[in-house]
Amino acid sequence: MHKFLLLGGDSRQLYLSRILTENGFFTVLHSDGDDPDFSLKEAMETCNIILCPIPFTKDKISLFSAHEMNDLGIGNLLSHLTSGHILFGGNIPAYVKEYARKNEIGCFDYMDMEDVTIKNTIATAEGAIAEAIRLSPGCLHQSKCLITGFGRCAKTLALKLKGLDLAITIAGRKANQLALASAMGFETILLSDLEKEIGRYDYIFNTIPALVIDGKLVSLVSRQATIIDIASAPGGVDFEACRQQGIRAKLSLGLPGIYAPETSAKILYEAILTCLSQTV
């Protein structure tokens, strides 16, 4: 039977460890740095499935951990990997994937799994809505809302917000995406036309990982608006301009791990078992 080593990460790793244990798997969890006797080398000699966090790293040096840990350097991890291991993680750097390929090490990136990314849009959307409610003194009901982009997360977010009776406009560059948004019942606008309209929105959700709401657009945003950016860091909003203008704005990352860690862990567990069944 497979033995699992879970390294770093946030509370998703804790829930994932519990789920694995409840299903009869041997697990070792190293995510808070409280065990001075922990040896990565010994743990990796014991376990053949290495479960790294989402994201795999933030500083490109060490595995991401919500708690300060000094023994999770990526180089240290790679030095102990063998062809007997299978590696999992989210947003695994290209050089790690290449190292695994050259050394015949199984490597699976959660973010390359369509089912995982689609299921996680639900937790991301719910988390984004929770962030907006927390940040704003107003009510979502019948507010005017702008969503920039219409990818997976934006679609799910738009549908959730529609259920809360917001008037939603989708902004994008691609005609096919805007056509789909229109067919789903949403108002649409080209990103290039935002200058004319951006001042009328109460809530703005950015999902595009590029600077789309720059200082010029921020200057046109209502001072009562709330901006939630769920694009990957550094996001797509000029936050310094928002601060100077007194506009509530927040880059909200890792929402599934914050608002739905148990559900997210269940999604990962199912994906991991599917991948392992295909390696036999």
Rank of each mutant, 00 (worst) to 15 (best):
L253W: 11
Q244L: 13
V237L: 00
A249Q: 06
S232Q: 06
D238M: 03
L211P: 11
T207H: 08
F239W: 02
I228G: 04
R248C: 12
I258E: 00
I208Y: 12
G254Y: 08
R223Q: 12
V221W: 04
G236Q: 11
Q244G: 14
E262T: 00
A210D: 15
A241N: 12
L220N: 03
D214L: 08
Q245P: 02
T263D: 13
A249S: 13
D214H: 14
V212T: 15
P256H: 07
A241D: 05
S219V: 09
S219Y: 11
T207A: 10
E240I: 13
E240H: 10
I230V: 14
K216T: 14
A241L: 06
A225K: 09
I258M: 03
I258Q: 07
E240Q: 14
A225P: 07
I228L: 06
Q224S: 15
E262L: 12
G235F: 01
A233D: 11
I247P: 01
P256N: 08
I230H: 02
G235H: 05
K250Y: 14
I208C: 13
V221Q: 03
S264A: 15
A231I: 08
V212P: 10
P261K: 00
R243V: 00
G236M: 05
I228V: 15
R223A: 11
E262N: 11
S252R: 02
S219F: 11
R223M: 06
A233Y: 15
P261T: 05
S232F: 05
V237M: 03
I228N: 04
P234D: 07
A249F: 10
